[in-house]
Amino acid sequence: MGIYDLMIKSKEIELSLDQIHFSQVNEDTLNQLLNEFKHFEALKKYDLPIDNKILLHGHTGCGKTATAKAIAKKLNKDIIILNLGGIVSSRLGETAKNVSNIFQKASRDKSVLFIDEFDFLGKLRDYDDKDSGEMKRLVNTVIQLIDYLSNDTLLIAATNHIEIIDKAVLRRFQLRLKFELPSRKELDSYYDELLNRYPEKLQDIERKYDISYAEAKDIIHREVKKLIIEWEEKKAQN
């Protein structure tokens, strides 16, 4: 594996934005973002910058990674996925260089750069004194890279712990979308959407609430598979 975890071509992304459940606030913000990129040249004539730095934060399993991929698909851009915590070298100086190389590649290709586990930058307090200097230099490097990111490149960062991210870094993001656990009504709508794909005899499944969309999907798949296996076993016994 290279300096980034994964690069996905836009045509290889299956899930689209209209298949993801958003709050009205998040949907409106994303529509504005997409329209700005759509009319990039018109805005450029008036020296108006694009809001090209967006932070997705909130509960795990609520669609942050899926959203980043779907945005790339909508914009017809390739996406580079970087797990920030996963590339930290034992020699921290190399980490700053690696991150710089990733930003440069994203800018050259006008890609979407998606940085997961972005809260890693806020964990300076967890490092020994001997490492803190290098970690601070890494944070400063990331700040500079964000500041000088080309306007036609989209940076999306995701975190489950926005509260521990360095405030100087947070200020660089023009847009912040909060992902929260879906309401009972939202989950019912999602359950209906999932279950309608199956025959009626497979739809009588107990629904759970106060969970994420990802958890709800896992429950449905697990219970549907269980029912199918039970019926297959009965058929085999007859």
Results as ranks from 00 to 15, higher is better:
Tyr4His: 14
Tyr4Thr: 12
Asp5Thr: 10
Met7Ile: 15
Met7Cys: 09
Met7Lys: 14
Lys9Leu: 14
Ser10Phe: 12
Lys11Arg: 13
Lys11Val: 15
Ile13Lys: 02
Ile13Tyr: 01
Leu15Trp: 09
Leu17Gln: 11
Gln19Thr: 02
Ile20Ala: 12
Phe22Gly: 10
Val25Gln: 02
Val25Tyr: 03
Glu27Pro: 03
Thr29Cys: 07
Asn31Ala: 14
Gln32Tyr: 01
Leu33Met: 10
Leu34Val: 02
Asn35Ser: 09
Phe40Lys: 10
Ala42His: 07
Lys44Val: 08
Lys44Tyr: 06
Tyr46Asp: 02
Asp47Trp: 03
Asp51Arg: 07
Ile54Trp: 05
Ile54Val: 15
His57Glu: 13
Gly58Thr: 06
Thr60Ile: 13
Gly61His: 03
Gly63Ile: 09
Ala66Gln: 00
Ala66Ile: 02
Thr67Ala: 03
Ala68Gln: 01
Ala68Tyr: 04
Ala68Gly: 08
Lys69His: 11
Ala70Gln: 04
Ala72Val: 09
Leu75Gln: 15
Leu75Asp: 15
Lys77Asn: 14
Val88Thr: 11
Arg91Pro: 05
Ala96His: 04
Val99Lys: 00
Lys105Ile: 06
Lys105Trp: 00
Lys105Tyr: 00
Ala106Glu: 00
Ala106Thr: 03
Lys110Trp: 01
Val112Leu: 12
Leu113Asn: 00
Phe114Glu: 00
Ile115Phe: 04
Ile115Asp: 02
Glu117Met: 05
Asp119Pro: 12
Asp119His: 00
Phe120Thr: 09
Leu121Pro: 07
Gly122Ala: 03
Lys123Asp: 05
Asp128Glu: 05
Asp131Lys: 11
Gly133Glu: 05
Glu134Gly: 10
Asn140Trp: 08
Asn140Met: 12
Thr141Lys: 03
Thr141Gln: 13
Gln144Phe: 13
Gln144His: 11
Leu145Tyr: 10
Ile146Trp: 10
Asp147Tyr: 05
Tyr148Asp: 13
Ser150Val: 15
Leu154Phe: 09
Ala157Ile: 13
Ala158Leu: 13
Thr159Arg: 10
Ile162Cys: 10
Ile162Leu: 08
Asp166Thr: 12
Asp166Arg: 04
Lys167Ser: 10
Ala168Thr: 07
Val169Leu: 11
Arg172Met: 14
Gln174Val: 07
Leu175Asp: 07
Arg176Trp: 04
Arg176Phe: 07
Glu180Cys: 10
Glu180Leu: 15
Leu181Phe: 08
Arg184Lys: 14
Glu186Asn: 10
Tyr191Gln: 06
Glu193Arg: 04
Leu194Glu: 01
Leu195Ala: 04
Arg197Ser: 13
Tyr198Asn: 02
Leu202His: 04
Asp204Gly: 12
Asp204Ala: 11
Arg207Gln: 15
Tyr213Pro: 06
Glu215Ile: 06
Glu215Tyr: 02
Ala216Trp: 09
Ala216Asp: 06
Lys217Met: 13
Ile220Trp: 01
Ile220Glu: 01
Glu223Lys: 15
Glu223Asn: 10
Glu223Met: 06
Val224Ile: 12
Lys225Pro: 07
Trp231Ile: 12
Glu233Gln: 05
Lys235Ile: 11
Lys235Arg: 06
Lys235Val: 05
Lys235Trp: 05
Ala236Val: 06
